[in-house]
Each structure stands twice: as C-alpha cells, then as structure tokens.
Design a protein around this nucleic acid. Structure first.
Lengths: 190, 190
DNA sequence: CCAGAACATGAACTAAGATTCATAATTAAG
DNA sequence: CTTAATTATGAATCTTAGTTCATGTTCTGG
C-alpha cells in the first residue's frame, strides 16, 4: 500500500538536491562526511536533511545502495556478454578489476564493497549481482579457467578487503595473486 | 645520549600500571578505546596518562609496537625452525595462520596487522620480521612450494586485510584461497 | 625530618558532529 | 487571495573524547 502523498514541489526539489550533494560528498569523502557538509553542498539547512532522512545512516544507505545497484547492473551486463567474443573468465576478470579501481577512486563504492563482505541487509541489488556473478563463475568453471570450488561468496569476501589505500602497483599485484588463487586447482582437480 | 634521569618510584609504578591497562583495553576494544577507560582500568587519573605519554597516539603506538615485536619474534622462531622436521612451507603456513587467528581475537594485533600494510614508520620490529619472513619464503621457494615471484610485501599486504570480522569458516576459506595463490605458478614456471 | 622537585588529580576546556525544535517561509487547495 | 498544512531554517542541545592545567600529593636527597 504505497499511500505516500506526493511531495510538495519544493520538497521534491530539495530531496533531489540533497541526494545529488550526498552522492558527491560521499564519493569524495566517504560516509564519514559531516551532515553539515552535505547540507552546504546541497544549498539547504541541516534540518532539511533530517526531514527527508530521519538519520544520517538512512541517507548514507540510500547513496551506497545506489552504487550497489550500479555494480549489480554491471555484473549482469558482464554475464550477458557470455558467449560473445571474450571468454567468461576474461569477463570475470575485467569486471572485478573495474570494481576494484572504482572502489579506489570512489569512496561510496568503497563503502558499497565493504557491504559485500558483511551482507547485512540482503538487498535486492546484492541478490541480483549475486545471480549474475554465479552465471559468470559457472561459465568460467566450464571453460576450465576457474577452480571448481569457487563460490560467489569468495569474490565478495575478497573484494570487501581490497587494499584500497595502497598505490596502484600494490593493488595490481594483489589482484594478480587473488585471481591466481581463484584459478589455482582448476588444473589439478578439474 | 640516553640522559633520562630515572623515574621516581611511584611514577615507574604508574607507568607499568598504565601500560598493562592500555594493553588489556586495546586488546579488548582496539585503539579507539577512550583514554578514560584506560585510566580507570589502571586505577589512575587521565592526567597521569598524559604525563607518561604526551598524546594518545603515543600510548597506542607503544602497545601496538609491542605486539609487532612479538610477531617478529614468532617469525624468527619459525625461520629458525627451517631444516627441522617440518618443511619451510609448512612453517610459513602455520605462522600466517597463527597471525590471522591472533588478529581475530586480539584488537591490538589487528591494529598491528594493519601497520604491515601501511608500513608507515619503518620500525625495527618490522624489519626484523621482514628478514625472518624472507628466509622462510626463500626456503619455501627452494622446496618448490611457493611461487617464484612471491615477496614479503605480498604477505604483508594480504595480512593487513584479513577479513577479521567474519566467522571463522570464512577466514579459513579466505586463508585457503590466499595460500593457493601464494603457491600457484610454483609448478608452471619454477 | 624537610624542602623542593616530581608527580598525580580531575574538573574544565575544546572540538566535532549528530540531532532537535521553535520559528519563519512556501505551497496548494478552495 | 487566504489559510491551513507542509517545509525549511539554523541556533541550540547533546554526546563523546582528547587534552590541559591549577591545585594537592608523594618522593628523595641532604
């Protein structure tokens, strides 16, 4: 029963401004950014933030969730590409590499990545991404490029802990080792 | 020029109490524990903490460093065991597994582990541990059980990001994958 | 045993940041 | 155009935690 009476014009306008500002601020400074900063960026008073979002956590969740959704969409896109020119393993690797780099330059994605590990509230987005990732992984195993026991959770756990504050070179090295771990055994057992 | 005049008896006593309390509190609650809590645990007033440690960071560093030192000592012990009954690779694995579990149950070690990643202040302890780890790794490569390009930094990076807040089962799985990554290629290239 | 140096105490100060709420401004329906 | 309902404002409140310092104690050398 979505009996939400429509927002007043100015309220709708402000809500949009708030979401945009929060997105900008959280991307740049992470969830720890003060509410005052978001309010200022949005050109609105703090009180207004609280009218639209009862608590800071709610606002942050809205933003982080939107990034989670984007990630899920990208995962689905990658899965849909299976059977095209590139191998599933290649798609898998490209996808996760992209997520890693996003998280490194976008504090909102970074926060979203953490949620992967602690899948607190089983968001719809998480589930969507999970399904897509399963498709990718199964295809990768079929190709013989991923270890037979690799699970979606493995990927989530790993990407919740990417060394984001280290220089690129370190991240790349980390990525190589992790991917090798995801592959290893693909040959032995199979 | 260590011209430190000896501490007065009561001061020395308090310093010890403070270090013990800080250790307890940081092990249990991590570096974020309030100075007040440490003071209370030590049976001393906050002002006294500040007489002995100019800033909270100094106190925390002292504690974390002591755990870093223990870790280095354990690494050396493991390296010294090379040539004994077990293989170097086994020692390597046992050592890191132990570090992981320590970090999971001891917030001070957890903090110390983070320092491994961001080797900010090149502590003497870090260097000692690094040397020992190099011995272990080289021996492991010689045995053919570790990938030829494995470096100490790899281990540091990884263990700075162990998924400590996840259940044991998850940590174990993570450990398996990482170790497999550390091995993989040992066969291919060699 | 005493003086003066060292040390300890803990209330007060400071800084941040989340959240509230009385007051003022806007909007939309009639 | 009015008015009641909805929103917005932002100064004030509350917490939390680090740090300081005037005042009171405790040591230690002589």
């Amino acid at each position: 029963m979505p009996n939400e009476r429509p927002l007043r014009a100015d309220a709708a306008r402000n809500r949009a401004k708030i979401l945009e500002a929060a997105n900008r601020q959280i991307i740049a400074f992470g969830p720890e950014v003060p509410m005052e900063s978001i309010a200022e960026d949005a050109g609105v008073a703090v009180g207004t933030l609280y009218r639209h979002f009862p608590t800071k956590a709610d606002l942050v969740r809205a933003i982080v969730d939107s990034h989670l959704e984007e990630m899920a969409a990208e995962a689905e896109a990658a899965a849909d590409r299976i059977g095209g020119g590139t191998s599933a393993v290649a798609e898998f690797i490209t996808f996760w590499h992209m997520i890693m780099e996003s998280a490194a330059s976008n504090k909102a994605v970074k926060a979203a990545a953490r949620e992967l590990g602690a899948s607190v509230d089983e968001t719809e987005h998480l589930r969507r991404g999970q399904v897509a990732m399963e498709r990718l992984i199964e295809a990768g195993k079929a190709e013989g490029g991923l270890r037979p026991d690799l699970a979606v959770e493995d990927c989530f756990i790993f990407f919740a802990t990417v060394p984001l504050d280290e220089p690129v070179a370190v991240r790349e090295r980390w990525f190589t080792l992790v991917i090798d771990g995801f592959r290893s055994g693909a040959l032995r057992e199979a």
